[in-house]
Each structure stands twice: as structure tokens, then as C-alpha cells.
Design a protein around this nucleic acid. Sequence first.
DNA 1: ATACTTGCTGACCCGAGAGTCAGTAAGGTG
DNA 2: CACCTTACTGACTCTCGGGTCAGCAAGTAT
Lengths: 213, 213
Amino acid sequence: MPKPRFRRRKEDRPREITAAALGAFAEKGYAATRITDVAKRAGVSKGLLYLYFKTKEELFKAVIRSFVSPRIDALKSAIDKTELTAEEYLRGPFLDFAKQVPKSPARVLVRLMIAEGAKHPDLAAWYQDNVVAHGLAALRELIERGVQNGEFRKSALQEFPHMIVAPVMFAMVWSLVFDPRHKLDSDRFIESHIGLILDAIKLPADSDKKGVA
Amino acid sequence: MPKPRFRRRKEDRPREITAAALGAFAEKGYAATRITDVAKRAGVSKGLLYLYFKTKEELFKAVIRSFVSPRIDALKSAIDKTELTAEEYLRGPFLDFAKQVPKSPARVLVRLMIAEGAKHPDLAAWYQDNVVAHGLAALRELIERGVQNGEFRKSALQEFPHMIVAPVMFAMVWSLVFDPRHKLDSDRFIESHIGLILDAIKLPADSDKKGVA
DNA sequence: ATACTTGCTGACCCGAGAGTCAGTAAGGTG
DNA sequence: CACCTTACTGACTCTCGGGTCAGCAAGTAT
């Protein structure tokens, strides 16, 4: 008996296809990616792809949606549950998370959003509501907690938790454009940047008033 | 006498064409822009366009090159010439400059670089050498001057002047993706961010050391 | 086994757009 | 003026890739 030409795996196909598409889009960008390439990567025929996704654009949206959500939700619940002080959390778990973002494969999604976002307003809106807003809300809450605790003074950071994210974004964009020709030590960059911001808003601890030098 | 079908203007054509192309690329992105659209915008035939630029890709590179350089050079020489202290300069002229970047038409060039940069390594290298490196060098020099003056303490900002640029980048990306649905008050964001960083590195003024050489 | 459903294939279709080139006319030169 | 150079035009070609669909075969029911 010859090996079967294919197997019927209705359940797995969408995942396989979006995963393949992520890889292809990452390498070439949306417009330059050929549907055929995606199909090949997924080990599937072009026709099947159109069975699961109506058009190339639908596929694109599905890719973004399926790969982004999980991470942010994890971040948010981690912040809600932690017992650490705001500063400890920012210098510890959050920093670890922030450092690995610019290195992760997910960074290419950011390129896709920047490049294509304006052309897909519904996708941008979804991204804003489901990713950006959640992430910023979690950060804002954490900072607010710090202010209530007396760890931090009042500052613009309460209004703009974006500042914590800006260096991560910067490092990501840098690596997307200049890697591997010009490296930025993103770990140290992000750590220093967040460190400086915290220095600026930190109140001296009550017990020993050593002052910040 | 019927009006002539066209005029011969060899000198002006390249400028006219790159300007038209910038507009088209800005609206649609590189891949989605049709050469014919560019030609129409420039009030010129498709054939002429190929007389001045060998391919669409050449045109793209020419666009980036011709619109970016001037600004950075202006910034650098302004920093070299100023009589202001580092902090005054950063909170004054530099801040004004930084605030208008995310609003200027030039921001679309950033989108183009992020979206297409990796596919054109020679262009990315040129951009790095002629734009990014110059800008960062100027900033680093300014900060170094502040440290020598006793305005600033030593800090990671000397190694990473990028930090000053990160909020500008962030505001730009935000506006590229989310405008006009979700506005970020980029002026106040950038001002607050740079303000916090300066707060973190500022040394208390030394009353007898007020002047600058 | 036979009949049936449906996940899957890949040759084909067709519109779109990058790049070409033979021809046209603006403007200069004598 | 006649003649030449060359900036400029736009119809054409040819490739490429998104999307279709008639048919095939893997699994299922009887």
C-alpha cells in the first residue's frame, strides 16, 4: 500500500496554516508573501488554504489575532497576583519579560502591525482594544499601587505608563531594521532606561533616609 | 497655438518624481504603490520615470535618501553652535524639534524604513551611517558636555543617548498605527518622558558654577 | 464490499502591474 | 528656415500571483 497522499485533519489545519503564515510574513512581509509559499510551508495545497481562509487578508488578520493575545493576558494576571512591591516587580519579572520581547519571534508581528496596520483599521482597532489597552492598564495599575504605597512620587508616569514600554519598542524597531549589521545591547538598554525612570520617581524609603545619589 | 503637450525640464524632474513618490509610498506603502500612480502624481509619463530611475526599488531608495539627510544635519550643527546648557537645550530647542517629528510628514519615512528596511540592507546601512549615527553622536556629545559641566551625574545616558529618542519613536509608531482612532498626546508624552530622564540624572545646581564656557 | 460525505488537490484562469521601445515633439544650433 | 538632439510619451508585452473549481481520495456508514 502506497503512503497516502494526505491525511484529513480538519482540527489541526488552521493552526498549522497560521503558523506557516507567520513564518512567511515574518520573512517577506505581507505583500511580498505568496500564498503558495504559505501552503508549501504548511505542507498543504493552495486550495485547502482557501477552504479555511477566504482571502489572503483574512489569513493575515487571523495570524495576528492568534499569536498576540496569550502573552498580554499572562502579563496582566501576573501583575494582579504578585506580592512584590511595584519597584521590585518592575525591576524583576517585568524587566525579564521586557528584555525577551525584542528577541522573540513575535517581534515581527510588530513590524507587520506598523507596516500594514493603517491599511486594516479593524485589525488596528482590535489590536488596540485587546492588546495595547490591556497591557497599559495593567502597568498603570501597578504604578498607581506604587504611588499609594509611598514607593513612588506622583508623576506623569501615572498618565503615561507608555514610558515603560517605549524603550522596549525602540529596541524592537532597532533590531528589526538594523540587525545584524548594528547591534544594540537591548538588555542593558532596557534595564538602564527603566532604571532611570524609576530613579526619577522613587521616594526615599522611610526607615533609612540615605537619599538617592 | 495649442498648448504644448509637455515641457522639457531635465533639472527638475528627479525632485518632482521623488516628491510624488514620497506621497504615494506614504499613502499606500511600497508594494501597494503603482508606478503609474507615481507618474500621474508627478504629471509625467511612466516611461519618463524609468528614464530617471532604473527600477521601482531604485526610486524607493532615492526617496528615502533625498528627504532624510537635511534634517539631521541641521540638528547636529544646531547642537554644535548653541550657547545653552545641555539641560536648557534639551528642554528647549531639542524638545521643540522632537515634538514636531511625530506630526511631520516625514514620519511615514519611518514606517517605510521599518517595513522595508530589512529587505534593502544597503539602504538600512546608509540610513544608519548617515542619519542615525549622526543624530546619536550629536546627542551623546551634548550629554557629555552636561556631565563635564557638572549639570548631570554620570549615567547610562552617556552610553545610550537612544533613551532621549525612544519616546519620540514610540509616539511616531503609535500615531502611524492608531491615529486617528486613538490619539496619544505626543507633545505632553515626549515632554514628560524627557523631563523624567533629566530629573533622574540632574545634579543640584552649584551656585558658583552657573556659566558655560 | 458499496455507497456516500467531505477534506483536500493542483491545473487553470485572468487581472494587474513592472518594465520596454518605437515614435513624437520641444527646444537648441547653424 | 531646416536640421539635429534628446526629453518625453503611452501602447504594448510578459510575468506573476490571487483566487477558482472539477475531480480525487480518505474516512464513515450501511
